[in-house]
């Protein structure tokens, strides 16, 4: 399993896979949702530290998980985006619907 999860006081940190395409998205979705259902997740953090590729399938995963967590009043954030992922976030409007960590100066 390429991606991992960490839980800390109601916060679920999802380490995103190296290549977030349709193939990886399917696995990630299932695992993240079962954790969100099982534990009280108040906030969700998508950590893109290891991610160097993302296509439109990744957008579906992120939006879907946002909906599932916000349903219970939680908040969602994306951190450690590289230039390519930032571009995908910008083009798709994802950065308007969730908090995105600002680029380091």
């Amino acid at each position: 399993m390429e991606h991992r999860f960490e839980r800390e006081y109601g916060c679920l940190i999802v380490k995103m896979p190296k290549e977030l395409d349709h193939h990886q998205a399917e696995v990630l979705k299932e695992e993240a949702d079962s954790l969100i259902l099982k534990y009280p997740v108040r906030s969700l953090v998508f950590d893109f530290s290891d991610t160097c590729f993302m296509d439109s399938s990744g957008i579906g995963v992120v939006i879907g998980r946002c909906k599932n967590v916000r349903f219970s009043g939680g908040y969602v954030k994306a951190v450690h985006l590289n230039q390519q992922i930032r571009r995908i976030f910008r083009l798709s409007g994802l950065q308007k619907i969730m908090e995105v960590e600002q680029e380091a100066e």
Binding site: K29, D55, S56, I59, G60, I63, I88, L91, S92
Partner: peptide, 14 residues
Amino acid sequence: ELERSGMGFAFMEA
């Protein structure tokens, strides 16, 4: 229902 974002062709064009 498969959480497709509908951005596939838009990305190809972009």
